[in-house]
């Protein structure tokens, strides 16, 4: 796979405050890449560097193998966490202006804008002033201005904040559709649920350092703690358990019991045959940790070190 963005040993400090400390990461083409971390960890600093708003003190950033430069500006689309548009400009004019600043020619921008407005069914907003729109509507407009120039790399900082669930879903599908069309997405958020839904890879930054990196699937495997859920008919009894297995929770509901167990490595087969000696098994599955749990655990651990 092609690497779209390569961040190599990047450091940045503001006065005494270190914003990023020797951070490296690779974003492959077609990825939805999650950039995670608590507030103030350095995500925004990194995003601003990718957007060439600021420069790294040390290290370098490569875009498709080339050192980041002015010509790459038109290849990047950026939706900042703090949304903002000129309130008094007309929606259409404003979108065209922002596209022109990104280097798009007027007539091409116009065509692309028409397509997006039709897609979002908002063609009648064209001549409205931004301040006449509701906050959610403004967010939609801002999303369009982010993708209008058809960038190869899209950076979304908390894209779902301010959207109702319906529009958030619409937006999610748009992002995935853009990905399918060949765009690469960097996605910065606190919303771990959405990370599980759409991210392929993540990097977790804490206090200016990279503390976790990898594919979402792999990370979940890495963090699994031997937790399983077994559902049996009837009620639970301690006879079902064997040595090396601890029960963490039992829920009895409508004649079945859902038992949560922590099983030491290599004891699964013996446990299952022991249970089958007493009763049936309706279902048996491993419980993988949620990204939320992984996030909290990793950050806490990093802070304690």
């Amino acid at each position: 796979m092609d690497t779209v963005l390569e961040v190599k040993n990047v450091s940045k400090s503001y006065g005494e405050k270190i914003a990023l400390d020797d951070v490296s990461l690779n974003v492959e083409k077609g990825d939805v890449f999650g950039l995670l971390g608590p507030n103030g960890a350095g995500k925004t600093t990194l995003i601003r560097m990718i957007n060439q708003i600021t420069k790294p003190d040390k290290g370098e950033i490569l875009f498709e193998g080339e050192k980041l430069s002015a010509k790459h500006i038109s290849q990047v689309g950026y939706l900042p966490e703090e949304r903002g548009l000129y309130k008094k400009m007309k929606v259409g004019q404003e979108a065209l202006y922002l596209a022109e600043l990104k280097g798009l020619k007027g007539n091409i921008a116009r065509k692309s804008l028409d397509d997006w407005f039709k897609k979002f069914e908002i063609t009648d907003w064209y001549n409205k002033k931004v301040q006449e729109l509701s906050k959610g509507m403004q967010q939609k407009v801002q999303f369009i201005t982010t993708v209008l120039h058809n960038p190869r790399l899209l950076i979304f900082d908390e894209p779902f904040s301010g959207f109702d669930p319906l529009n958030a879903d619409l937006l999610k599908n748009e992002i995935l559709e853009l990905r399918d069309k060949g765009a690469t997405v960097i996605f910065s958020t606190h919303n771990m649920e959405s990370v599980e839904q759409i991210c392929d890879k993540i990097v977790l930054i804490n206090s200016s350092k990279k503390v976790l990196e990898g594919k979402v699937k792999d990370i979940k495997q890495r963090f699994k703690a031997g937790l399983f859920e077994i559902i049996i008919p009837g009620e639970y009894s301690d006879d079902l358990l064997i040595e090396g297995v601890t029960k963490t929770d039992v829920i009895y509901n409508n004649g079945t019991s859902a038992i949560k167990l922590k099983i030491e490595k290599g004891r699964n087969a013996e446990l299952l045959s022991n249970i089958l000696r007493h009763t049936d098994i309706i279902s048996y599955k491993e419980i993988l940790p949620s990204m939320n749990e992984i996030f909290i655990q990793t950050v806490k651990q990093a802070n304690n070190e």
């Binding site: 060439q52 950026y78 903002g84 548009l85 000129y86 201005t145």
Partner: peptide, 17 residues
């Protein structure tokens, strides 16, 4: 006005400040 409305973040990602 540009700073308060936060549009400036988008602008500086497109042009030199």
């Amino acid at each position: 006005e540009e700073k308060t409305s936060r549009i400036v973040e988008v602008l500086v990602s497109s042009v030199k400040s």
